[in-house]
Design a protein around this nucleic acid. Structure first.
Length: 186
DNA sequence: GACAAGATTCGCT
DNA sequence: GCGAATCTTGTCG
């Protein structure tokens, strides 16, 4: 479901943790596919304790720790048995910005607040304990953008940080809104 | 049971 | 712009 990664741009991501409501508009995503994509943790049908969530029906959260420091937040995006997922790389704060600033230990808003997969997760309070959450209901869920007039201009490019995946690293499966400041590049 | 590497970020030069 | 920090996961013995 690579197409879904594109559709997610401009949608809303809402986290309601510890009574704090935060809303962010998704500005950057990357698609990962279980079959034929060496960059995906579940490529070639590999099934481990960490990746088993991706074999479940879509709409679940796949959170894992990278470099021992950062929580990366993915959305499982396909039907049962198809290990696809979409990585959220960046979003633009709309509500609850003060909570995001506090979690990030920052004083004022900058693009670094919620651009970059690790930063985004931290701003919204997403951690590994959120692994397997149903993303259709609180405390963490997705919602359509009600601003009908908003139609993001979407661009695609190769994915970031996966040079080890060989030729699969060149696939243009990164999608983003170039008009937003809250993206990692471009 | 041990070892190598990673879908990154921050701080300093 | 570059290099270090840091620990979980997967693979191998």
């Amino acid at each position: 479901m690579v197409a879904l990664a594109r559709q997610l741009i401009g949608q809303l991501l809402i986290s309601e943790k510890e009574g704090k409501r935060c809303v962010a508009r998704i500005t950057e995503t990357e698609a990962y596919r279980g079959w034929g994509d060496r960059a995906c943790h579940a490529h070639l049908g590999r099934k481990t304790q960490r990746t088993q969530i991706m074999y479940q029906p879509g709409g679940l959260a796949y959170v894992y720790l990278c470099y021992g420091i950062h929580n990366l937040f993915n959305i499982v995006s396909n039907r049962k048995g198809q290990a696809d997922a979409i990585l959220l790389r960046a979003a633009e704060p709309l509500e609850g910005t003060e909570h995001m600033l506090k979690r990030r230990k920052m004083e004022k808003v900058s693009p670094r607040l919620s651009s970059g997969p690790g930063n985004l997760s931290q701003a919204l309070g997403i951690e590994r304990s959120d692994y397997g959450l149903d993303l259709s209901k609180p405390p963490l869920y997705l919602a359509p953008n009600l601003q009908a007039s908003f139609t993001p201009k979407i661009q695609s490019s190769p994915r970031v940080g996966i040079d080890y995946a060989g030729e699969d690293a060149a696939l243009p499966w990164r999608f983003y809104d170039p008009r937003s400041r809250f993206v990692t590049k471009g």
